[in-house]
C-alpha cells in the first residue's frame, strides 16, 4: 500500500532560522531518507522550493490563465512529499512520526489511489 506523506509547514522558518539550525535540519533529512531507503519502503521524495517561486495555471474556456503564487495562500504550505510503500496506516504513521518535519510542521498521510508504472496506471494495493 502506497502512502504519500505531505509535509506542511510555515515557509518563514527557512528565512528566520540561523544557518546552524538549518544545517542540522538538512542532516536530519539525509539520515531520514537513508533510513527509509535501508528499510526498503522509500519510493520517492522531493522537497519543494518556496511558494515564492510557484506558478499556478488553469485553462478556462480554452484560455490559459497563469497566476503568480501557490494554489492556496495559507500560512502553512505544502513543502515536500515522501512516497512510501508499507503494509498499513500504522506503519505509515510510524514512519511519518520519525520525519524531522513532524517536529516543526504537520504531516498529512494520504493513501494513494493509483500510480503509474512505466506510464501505465496501476491500482494501489
Amino acid at each position: 500500500m502506497r502512502y504519500t506523506l505531505l509535509m506542511h509547514y510555515s515557509e518563514e522558518a527557512g528565512q528566520v532560522l540561523p544557518p546552524e539550525v538549518l544545517e542540522e535540519g538538512r542532516r536530519a533529512m539525509r539520515s531520514y531518507a537513508a533510513t527509509l531507503q535501508a528499510a526498503g519502503v522509500l519510493i520517492s521524495a522531493e522537497v519543494l522550493q518556496s511558494t515564492a517561486s510557484s506558478t499556478t495555471i488553469r485553462v478556462r474556456d480554452g484560455a490559459l490563465q497563469v497566476q503568480d503564487g501557490p494554489f492556496a495562500d495559507t500560512k502553512e504550505q505544502l513543502a515536500g512529499t515522501f512516497v512510501i510503500d508499507v503494509a498499513d496506516l500504522d506503519a505509515a504513521i510510524a514512519w511519518a512520526r520519525q520525519s524531522p518535519q513532524a517536529q516543526w510542521g504537520a504531516i498529512e498521510i494520504r493513501p494513494g489511489a493509483t500510480h503509474t508504472v512505466a506510464g501505465v496506471w496501476q491500482p494501489n494495493t
Binding site: M1, A87, D88, L89, D90, A91, I109, P111
Partner: peptide, 14 residues
Amino acid sequence: KDARIPFAIPDRRA
C-alpha cells in the same frame, strides 16, 4: 478500508 487501518493488536510499545 481505504486508509488501511490495520486489524491488529498494537505491540507493547504502542
